[in-house]
Amino acid sequence: MTMDDGETPILQVRGLRTYFETDLGVGKAVDDVSFTLRRGQIIGLVGESGSGKSVTGQSLIGLVDRPGRIVGGEILFKGRDMAKLAPEELRRLRGDRISIIFQDPMTTLNPVLSIGTQLIETVLAHYPSVTPQKARERARDMLGKMGIPNPEERLDAYPHQYSGGMRQRVAIAMALINDPECVIADEPTTALDVTIQSQIAHEVKDLCRNAGTALIWITHDLGLVAALADDICVMYAGRIVERGRVEDVLGKPLHPYTRGLMDAVPSRNKRGVRLSQIPGSMPPLLALPGGCAFHPRCWRADQSDCRVSPPEESPREDGGALRCHHPLEDSIVMAR
């Protein structure tokens, strides 16, 4: 397998498991997750809060908070297993070939360093031969691309002199500054105003599309995924319960959880119809029910299989996959 034949996917995740081993027990935050990200592709990773999306994203770049640990599986970045890389090799990839944008723009920038310093050091960490002058120009251009007015002046400003939306634009500029091949965006717009949210999301999408950058967009907003992504992965309790092309999965959801999430989204065609929330909430990691972890909240759960055996992944006809003993074979096609 050659490393750069254009066919090797950017990222192949196989059987990824990230556990939090604590005194109270083992929290399986990511449990047997597999998916493939091709060059330039955009995947939306959705699920309720606590379903393991962030830990998945952090696992991909080897930055899981302690006591979390990747205990199994492979993360093949262009064919190389990231989980087996030496720390120095991993460092060289991070921020250069693969980068991440975190959720809260108010805390992700260092308060005592200027924006310029924080952008420039990202370039110099990977390209030490670049002159500081050139790195600064690059930083200024990235800020400009992200729609920050007077980028040259704003380089010398500090995070507290930026608004939340502007800080997130800086964080995005920082993630994109070295032209990565893969970007993980962990709910980067959730903390922002609704209007700014979709604006920034679309800008990031366009930037990635133009640069051919693959993107994993983590969110709990199905509408955003529908507008942004090529593929979707729906996550629940550490597992991907359904995945496939966005139009396939959202056009014909087969997993009750996917369907439940969709029914909870307000939409123009359903105006006046009461939104139905999925009953109950995500159970705590250390108290996950046996069998299918979704069964206490699932209207299709039976008394045997669903309670006893965790559903294996089975293929959808359209190339996707799902984990359910009783898929919704003929669910109504939802107009989007």
């Binding site: 460092r91 991070r94 991440i100 992700t108 920038l109 050091e121 990202t122 960490a125």
Partner: peptide, 29 residues
């Protein structure tokens, strides 16, 4: 444990830079 240190790691900064610039400048205050 601050988020900005995690960001510094995510950017691929060398450990020395993280400790001597990002950490030290904050604790010196």
């Amino acid at each position: 444990h601050q988020d900005y240190i995690r960001t510094a790691r995510a950017k691929g900064l060398k450990n020395d830079r993280i400790v001597f610039v990002h950490v030290l400048k904050n604790i010196m205050i």
